[in-house]
Design a binder for these strands. Structure first.
Length: 455
RNA sequence: GUGAUUGUAGCUCAGCUGGUUAGAGCGCUGGUUUGUGGCACCAGAGGUCGCCGGUUCGAACCCGGUCUUUCACCCCA
C-alpha cells in the first residue's frame, strides 16, 4: 500500500489551525454584518460557459475543468483529437470549479434580479480553486471573503470598504499595513495625458513593476510596448513625484487638466475622502498610490489593495468598482463595488507576526476522571449535570489508568479534571483539580458546576 | 506555461570525495509511581533515505525520469 497524499497546492487544517481560521472568519463575518451585508453561497462548480472569458486568456488556463460524467468521450471525433486540446475540451467538460466569488455573484444577481432589493449588499465566504503553480501564500484551493454592493454608484460604498478593512485588521491585531487606493479613471487619464490614449493596460503592467525593477527598466519595457519617447518623458514627473496625499491630488489636477475622465477619477477619490470626514473618520492607513493597477479587465472606478508591512506575503485584500460586471450575463448598466479578504494569506501573515492568541482552542473545560468501574459509573452520571450548566465536559471513554487520563487532559489543554473516586462517591462530591495551578479541592456537585461556570 | 530549488524516523535536522547493522534532539510507548498530569531518571518501538529506472563489486550520496516543496517570471488572495 502506498502512502496517501494530497493534491498539489491543497492542505488539511487540524484543530489548532481551524480554531485560528475560525477566529479570522468570525471577525470578518461580524464586520460584514455590522455594515449591513447579507450572506449567500453559490455552488463550487459552475457551467464552464459562465466562467470562461471572464478572467482573460491566462485565467481560462487556470480554471479547473470537471470531466463529464459517464462516457465523456462519446462526442469526441478523431478529428477533434487531431485539432488539439481546445477542440476536445468543450466536448468532454461542461463544468468547472469557480475561480473567484465575483463572477458567480454576477451570475446570481442576473438570475435573481427580480427578487433582489437594490442596492444589494452581499457577502460570501467560500473556497475558490485555481490551477496556479503553488508558492508561499499561493494555493490551488483557498478561501475568499467577498463583500460586494450592486445597484448603486454611491461612493459611500468605497468609504465603507476602508472602514471595514480597518475594523477587521484592528480586531486581528494588525498595526502596520497600508490600504492602497487608486482610481481606474486616473490611470485612463494618465494614459491620455501623456499622449497614449487607451493604452493604460500595458502602461500599468509596466509601471506596476516600478518598485521591483526601477524606472530605467520600466522605460525600456514601455518602449518595447510601443510607447513613444515623448510619452515616456511626459510620464517622468509623475514617477518622480514625492508628495503627501493632498499634494498628489493637487499635482494630478494639473497633470490631468486636459483629461475629463482623469479629473473625474480625482474627483471621485476626493469625494471618498470627504465622505469619510463627514463620518467623523480619518485617513489612517490609507495610501493614495497613483501607480496602483489591478484587475484592469473589469474595474472602472476605485481600486483597492491591502498589504501588510514587514511580511513576506503578498496582498491580503483587494477589490474595486466595476460598472458593468453583469453585462456579460445580459444585465447591463448595473454598477457594483466589492472587495475580498484572503483568509489563507491573513493566516500566514498573523502566523509570521506571531499574532495568534495563545489559548485559542476553546475546547473542553472539564475532564471527568476515575479509578475503577465504580468511579466510571459515577462520572457517567455527572456528565449531564455539568453539560446542562453549560460547561464543556467530557469523560475519558476507555477505562484507563488515572495517569493516562491526566495526561490526556494535559495534552488537550483541558484546564480542570474532576476526580471520581471512592471518597467522592461516598460523600456525593467531586474533587476538582486545576491542572494549570495544581490546586485541588473537594466540592459538592452543584458547587463545582457553579464554580466552573464562572471560570 | 518557462527557469531554478527541495525531499533522510511523527516533527526539526545531521550523515565525510560512493564503502559494514543510517544517527541526534523533540515527540511516542512502557517503567520508577495501583488516589493524581507537567519535571526528572531508566528502558523500548519507529526509516524499502519521496517514487521509478540507470551507472557501479557496492548508492541516502552519482545520472535520467516523475511527484512534492520552495523561489523567480507571469498573474494573483
Amino acid at each position: 500500500m502506498q502512502k496517501p497524499s494530497l493534491p498539489k497546492g491543497t492542505r488539511d487544517f487540524g484543530p489548532v489551525q481551524m480554531a485560528r481560521r475560525t477566529h479570522i472568519l468570525e471577525v470578518i463575518k461580524e464586520t460584514f454584518q455590522l455594515f449591513g451585508y447579507q450572506q449567500i453561497e453559490t455552488p463550487a462548480m459552475e457551467n464552464l460557459s459562465t466562467l470562461t472569458g471572464k478572467y482573460g486568456d491566462e485565467g481560462d488556463q487556470l480554471l479547473f475543468k470537471i470531466l463529464n460524467s459517464g462516457d465523456f468521450l462519446k462526442d469526441v471525433e478523431s478529428t477533434d483529437l487531431e485539432s488539439g486540446a481546445s477542440a476536445v475540451l468543450p466536448k468532454v467538460a461542461e463544468k468547472g470549479l469557480r475561480y473567484d466569488l465575483t463572477v458567480p455573484f454576477a451570475r446570481y444577481v442576473v438570475m435573481n434580479r427580480n427578487e433582489l432589493t437594490f442596492p444589494f449588499k452581499r457577502y460570501q465566504i467560500q473556497p475558490v480553486w485555481r490551477a496556479d503553480r503553488p508558492q508561499k501564500g499561493r494555493y490551488r484551493e483557498f478561501y475568499q471573503c467577498d463583500a460586494d454592493v450592486v445597484g448603486t454608484e454611491s461612493l459611500v460604498c468605497e468609504a465603507e470598504i476602508i472602514l471595514m478593512i480597518r475594523n477587521v485588521f484592528g480586531k486581528l491585531g494588525l498595526k502596520d499595513y497600508s490600504i492602497k487606493i487608486n482610481n481606474r479613471k486616473i490611470l485612463t487619464g494618465i494614459a491620455e495625458a501623456i499622449g497614449e490614449e487607451g493604452k493604460e493596460g500595458p502602461l500599468c503592467v509596466a509601471i506596476d513593476k516600478l518598485d521591483k525593477i526601477g524606472w530605467e527598466k520600466v522605460q525600456e519595457e514601455l518602449s518595447q510596448r510601443g510607447f513613444g519617447n515623448q510619452s515616456i518623458q511626459n510620464l517622468a514627473p509623475l514617477v518622480s513625484l514625492e508628495a503627501d496625499l493632498a499634494g498628489k491630488v493637487e499635482f494630478l489636477k494639473s497633470f490631468l487638466k486636459n483629461s475629463e475622465t482623469g479629473l473625474k477619477g480625482v474627483e471621485e477619490l476626493e469625494e471618498v475622502f470627504q465622505i469619510l470626514s463627514q463620518m467623523g473618520e480619518n485617513l489612517d492607513f490609507v495610501d493614495f498610490d497613483i501607480m496602483l493597477a489591478r484587475g484592469l479587465s473589469y474595474y472602472t472606478g476605485a481600486i483597492f489593495e491591502v498589504k501588510v508591512n514587514g511580511v513576506s506575503i503578498g496582498s491580503v485584500s483587494g477589490g474595486g468598482r466595476y460598472d458593468n460586471l453583469t453585462g456579460v450575463f445580459g444585465l447591463p448598466g448595473v454598477s457594483g463595488i466589492g472587495f475580498s479578504f484572503g483568509v489563507d494569506r491573513l493566516y500566514d501573515v498573523l502566523d509570521e507576526l506571531g499574532l495568534f492568541p495563545e489559548e485559542n482552542l476553546n475546547g473542553t473545560k472539564l475532564l471527568l476522571t476515575y479509578f475503577d468501574e465504580k468511579g466510571f459509573s459515577y462520572a457517567l452520571s455527572l456528565l449531564n449535570i455539568f453539560r446542562k450548566a453549560g460547561i464543556k465536559t467530557e469523560i475519558y471513554p476507555d477505562q484507563a489508568k488515572i495517569k493516562k487520563q491526566f495526561e490526556f487532559a494535559t495534552k488537550k489543554q483541558i484546564s480542570f479534571v474532576g476526580i471520581c473516586g471512592d471518597n467522592e462517591i461516598q460523600s456525593g462530591t467531586i474533587s476538582i483539580k486545576n491542572l494549570n495551578s495544581g490546586e485541588q479541592n473537594s466540592y459538592s456537585i452543584q458547587e463545582a458546576a457553579g464554580l466552573l461556570e464562572n471560570l
